[in-house]
C-alpha cells in the first residue's frame, strides 16, 4: 500500500470523512441548492421556473423584510449590551464568592438548559392578562401589566427579546467565569499591593485578560442573532402587525405558509451573505493582529 495512504495525515482524513460526507449532504448541498432556488419561483412542489433576479427586486420592495431586518439589528444590539454587561458583572462578582458559588452558577445557568417552549410558556403565563401578574395587580386595584407586552406592538419585540435574554445570559456568565479563572492570580496580588480598587482590577486586569473569550462571545451573539426564530415564533409569531417579525420568521412564513420557496431562498441567501460579512470582518481583524 502506498505510504501516503497510511500516513498520519491520511488517517486523519479517514476519520473526518464521515463527518464531511454528512455535512456535504445535509448542510453544504442544500445550501448550494438554496443559492440556485433564489433565482426561481418554486413553490416547493411543482415546476421550477427561472425568474432571474426578480426575487431580489421583490425583496428590496418588501416592507415586511425591511421591518424584519431592522428588528434583527435592534435584537443584535440588545443582545450585545444587556446580557453581556449583566453577565460580566455577575461573573466578576461570582469570582469573589468562595462558598456556595456552585448554587449561583446553577441558578443562573438553569434557564439555558430549559427548552425554548418551556421558557416561553413560563413568561407567557407571567404576562397573561388574566392569570399572570396583570391579573394579580388588577385584583390589588393596580393598573399594571393589564395588557401582555407580547400583545402590544410597541413592546412585543422587546418582551420577546427579554425572554430570550433571560434564557441566554446564564450561558455568558459561565463562559466569562471560565475566562476569569484563567487569569493569573499574581496579577491581582500585584494590583492589591499597588492599592487598586475592585473596579480598577476589573478594568485593567480582568477585561484585557479575557478579551479573546469576550470577543468570541460577541461573535457568537452577532451570528446567532441572524437566524433567531424560536422565541419569536412561539411567543408572537412575529406579531402583532409584524412588530416582532424577524428575518428567519419571515423566511419561514414565505416558505411554509405562503409556499414561496424560491423567494424564501432569497431571504436565506441574504442571511448567508450577512453572516459571511461578519465572519469576514472578524477574520480581517485577526489578520491585523487583533486577539480575536
Amino acid at each position: 500500500m502506498p505510504k501516503f495512504l497510511t500516513s498520519i495525515n491520511a488517517i486523519s482524513w479517514y476519520f473526518l470523512f464521515p463527518v464531511i460526507f454528512i455535512h456535504f449532504f445535509v448542510v453544504a448541498f442544500p445550501s448550494i441548492l438554496s443559492l440556485l432556488l433564489c433565482l426561481t419561483d418554486w413553490n416547493g412542489f411543482g415546476r421550477i421556473n427561472y425568474v432571474g433576479l426578480e426575487n431580489f427586486q421583490e425583496l428590496f420592495r418588501d416592507r415586511v423584510f425591511k421591518k424584519a431586518v431592522k428588528h434583527n439589528i435592534i435584537w443584535t444590539v440588545m443582545f450585545l449590551t444587556i446580557p453581556v454587561i449583566v453577565a460580566l458583572i455577575i461573573a466578576y462578582l461570582l469570582t469573589g464568592i468562595k462558598r456556595g458559588q456552585l448554587f449561583y452558577r446553577l441558578v443562573y445557568f438553569f434557564p439555558y438548559i430549559l427548552a425554548s417552549i418551556v421558557n416561553c410558556l413560563i413568561w407567557r403565563y407571567i404576562f397573561h392578562p388574566r392569570h399572570g401578574l396583570g391579573g394579580w395587580f388588577e385584583n390589588q386595584g393596580i393598573d399594571f401589566l393589564a395588557k401582555s407586552p407580547f400583545a402590544m406592538k410597541e413592546t412585543a419585540l422587546y418582551a420577546v427579546a427579554w425572554v430570550d435574554m433571560w434564557h441566554f445570559w446564564g450561558f455568558l456568565v459561565i463562559i466569562y467565569l471560565t475566562g476569569m479563572y484563567q487569569v493569573d492570580d499574581s496579577l491581582y496580588e500585584a494590583a492589591d499591593i499597588e492599592g487598586a480598587t475592585k473596579f480598577q482590577k476589573f478594568r485593567y486586569i480582568t477585561l484585557p485578560m479575557i478579551r479573546p473569550i469576550f470577543v468570541l462571545s460577541l461573535i457568537i451573539i452577532i451570528i446567532w442573532s441572524v437566524p433567531t426564530f424560536d422565541y419569536v415564533y412561539i411567543l408572537t409569531m412575529g406579531g402583532p402587525a409584524y412588530s416582532s417579525e424577524v428575518v428567519a420568521n419571515h423566511l419561514y412564513s414565505q416558505a411554509f405558509q405562503r409556499m414561496n420557496v424560491g423567494y424564501a431562498s432569497t431571504i436565506g441567501v441574504m442571511m448567508f451573505f450577512y453572516v459571511g460579512i461578519i465572519v469576514g470582518f472578524f477574520a480581517i481583524l485577526r489578520r491585523m493582529g487583533w486577539e480575536v
Binding site: 404576562f127 392578562p129 388574566r130 395588557k147 401582555s148 407580547f150 400583545a151 402590544m152 406579531g239 402583532p240
Partner: peptide
C-alpha cells in the same frame, strides 16, 4: 374586551371566559 387581550387569550382561556 380589547385587541391586546384578544391577542393574549388562547383556546382554553376564551372558552372558559
Amino acid at each position: 374586551g380589547d385587541l391586546e387581550t384578544y391577542y393574549s387569550l388562547d383556546w382554553d382561556d376564551f372558552n372558559n371566559e
